[in-house]
Design a protein around this nucleic acid. Structure first.
Lengths: 193, 193
DNA sequence: CATATTCTTTGTCGTACGTTCCAGATAGTC
DNA sequence: GACTATCTGGAACGTACGACAAAGAATATG
């Protein structure tokens, strides 16, 4: 015996996510979010509790939409070197496509929110950890198959590759030149040779 | 025939820099800056014009204090591989020491301000470029001397190393574990073998 | 020592912030 | 179809924002 929510929560979070990516947490006002979602502030607070809550929802959506697919790609791939290159090219393309206006919410959160909001820090660790584990699995199997050199442990390689991906996002924000990013990625990938 | 400024501008900028590193641009208020510097807001506006101006001054101080020494180290070094490792270890130590509270202003600016303030973007490009050029010079000479393999160009290697350093700063914000960062750095450095 | 000039401080400007509350609209239940 | 629980949009809350103006304090010059 009640009225149902009229708006689609996921659509609203997606709109909020775009704003947060563009303006950061502190740079985004609730009015920005109300305008972007087309909702009144009352509805936003009813659904998400606070600006923090909405940011967290946006971060979760970002992880689901942009981070999880990377680990999925890795798990679905066959050849280790091929699938890892695929991931790197995908990230570089993503950066070169929209970069500058739509930053990576993971890196943004790491810089702006990780040391303030414990739940944000937790999620960032979880996301990078998942990616690292997926890389580790691919690398370890590649090493077993003799496709990846065993001079360096799969753990260290996976850790390094995650770091490289984060570095690419930062460089993309400073100088979003696809060719330059791609060259950087290629050198990173030579650690698999 | 006039009164002299009582406070030391550099000291004030240094205090402001610390606040910006901790709270970011949007997260820092003029009141925060007044409190940190011990000055009235009037003095701050007289000396720096605006919050933007003070941020820019803080960024310049950061570049001078933390980025320039890296290029100086590179230029002063003898063996290419040694001095580059020295730079990486220095950065990792810096991250591990205070990280989480005092973020890298370069990466922070890249995420928060580069696409908003043109002068910030310019300075970030200039800084990364300087570091890259210094690395290039060291690498090119190392290649001439036969200390660095020539399979990949000095340009690509330098570009990659800068990207790796940025990646380390992001990873440090997410998980400031020195050992993990160091392992990542070690893998990055194997591109010089 | 007087004067002119600049610095510092303080208070205040209008605006925008995150959040809350309320009146009206809406839909599920009887 | 009336009732009622929930949602909606927007007005309004007190606070804090960036910026500025003006008055008092201080010093280099003559």
């Amino acid at each position: 015996m009640a009225r149902n929510r009229e708006f689609d929560v996921d659509v609203a979070v997606a709109a909020a996510m775009d704003v947060f990516r563009r303006k950061g947490y502190e740079g985004t006002s609730m009015r920005d979010l109300a305008e972007a979602t087309g909702l009144g502030s009352g509805s936003l607070y009813a659904a998400f509790g606070s600006k923090d809550g909405l940011y967290l929802a946006a971060l979760d959506l970002y992880r689901q939409r942009y981070a999880a697919p990377l680990t999925d790609m890795l798990r679905a791939g066959n050849d280790a070197r091929d699938v890892i290159r695929e991931v790197f090219v995908g990230v570089v393309d993503d950066i070169a496509r929209d970069s500058r206006r739509q930053a990576c919410l993971i890196v943004g959160a790491a810089m702006e929110r990780a040391h303030t909001d414990l739940r944000v820090a937790e999620r960032l660790r979880s996301t990078t950890q998942s990616l690292e584990v997926a890389l580790f699995d691919v690398l370890a199997e590649g090493q077993l198959r003799g496709q990846i050199p065993t001079a360096r442990s799969a753990r260290d390689l996976a850790n390094f590759l995650v770091t490289s991906l984060q570095g690419l996002r930062v460089m993309g924000a400073i100088n979003p030149d696809r060719a330059s990013l791609m060259r950087s990625a290629e050198v990173a990938l030579t650690c698999l040779d």
